[in-house]
């Protein structure tokens, strides 16, 4: 339990190591607010849903062509 706690506390400090930003980098405006609110994940989710939908459609077309190919070859 203690070890787990230590690891957990260590993990909490991890972001500190990645703070080595140059002054220019911290000044530059980025979508930090959106990400801190967690809303960028909404966009990622949306894009993923679209992608999954399109891929499922693509796979179903692929299957259909497979079927047609075997039908044509058997005749």
């Amino acid at each position: 339990m203690k070890r787990i706690l230590t690891i957990f506390l260590f993990l909490l400090t991890l972001p500190v190591f990645s703070q080595g930003k140059t002054p220019v980098e911290t000044q530059t405006e980025m979508a930090d607010l959106l990400r801190s609110n967690g809303k960028i994940y909404v966009v990622v989710g949306t894009v993923l849903i679209v992608l999954i939908g399109l891929l499922i459609y693509l796979i179903s077309i692929d299957r259909k062509i497979n079927k047609l190919e075997s039908e044509v070859k058997n005749k």
């Binding site: 980025m30 960028i40 966009v43 990622v44 894009v47």
Partner: peptide, 12 residues
């Protein structure tokens, strides 16, 4: 999609 939208990128 996931990495491209979420991973760290240089600030310019």
């Amino acid at each position: 999609v996931i990495g491209g939208l979420l991973m760290e990128v240089p600030r310019r």
